[in-house]
């Protein structure tokens, strides 16, 4: 249960890229309502400060962070609201000028994802492993090694399924679910985008 409001004249793509992971990491850690960590608030302030966003409001169960720029400076406010027994309403207000909404789902809300909705694919799957960053997709730890996984392989949440490399950082991507790999969507050595689906998994 969370709500993100960003009101601004315009928002540049890269700010979105930077903001979504931060917000998602906050949401993921908050199994129970809790205050944001100082580090997380600091991170948000810095991102907002660097952006053209004038006003920012982020709300999770019982915690609300509001930031408003005054004379170029970010002013932030964190409120710990009483936790209500009823589920908070997940409403989305329409801020006036060119509203930008980030509906943060388990998978990044990217246009491509929406277009290739379930009907578009013939394979039977119920989870996708997506890329956490822009980078080069590698199916194996080295050109001579066997690939981490092949179609039909069973995976566990901590199984490494591929590597995505960006700026020489080698990110071992884990499946995060238990199941069977039904489709590999990227080619070895291909450049992948943030949030791009890499594998389809039929969970068990």
């Amino acid at each position: 249960m969370y709500k993100v409001e960003v009101s601004t004249a315009f928002i540049v793509e890269c700010y979105k890229e930077l903001l979504i992971p931060v917000i998602k990491s906050v949401i993921k850690k908050q199994g129970v309502p809790s205050m944001l960590k100082v580090q997380e608030i600091r991170e948000l302030i810095r991102l907002i400060d660097d952006s053209k966003i004038d006003e920012f409001c982020f709300e999770t169960n019982g915690t609300k962070v509001t930031m408003k720029k005054q004379g170029g400076q970010v002013v932030s406010q964190q409120l710990q609201e009483p936790v209500q027994a009823a589920a908070p309403v997940q409403e989305e207000k329409q801020p006036q000028p060119e509203p930008v909404k980030e509906k943060t789902e388990q998978k990044p809300a990217q246009e491509e994802n929406k277009q290739e909705a379930p009907a578009a694919s013939q394979s039977d799957y119920d989870a996708e492993v997506t890329s956490p960053m822009v980078g080069t997709f590698y199916t194996a730890s080295s050109p001579d090694s066997d690939p981490y996984v092949r179609v039909g392989d069973k995976v566990k949440p901590d199984s490494v399924v591929c590597i995505v490399e960006a700026m020489k950082l080698f990110n071992e991507i884990e499946a995060e679910v238990s199941g069977e790999i039904v489709e590999i969507l990227a080619e070895d050595g291909e450049l992948v985008e943030y949030g791009q689906p890499l594998f389809r998994v039929k969970t068990v």
Partner: peptide
């Protein structure tokens, strides 16, 4: 040399290899 090789007089003197274990957002 972008991103992370260190050169002295055009020759490599140091290298950095970064490996990460991460989930989508953490």
């Amino acid at each position: 040399k972008w991103p992370n090789d260190i050169l002295i007089n055009h020759k490599k003197i140091a290298g950095i290899l970064t490996e990460m274990q991460a989930e989508q957002d953490q």
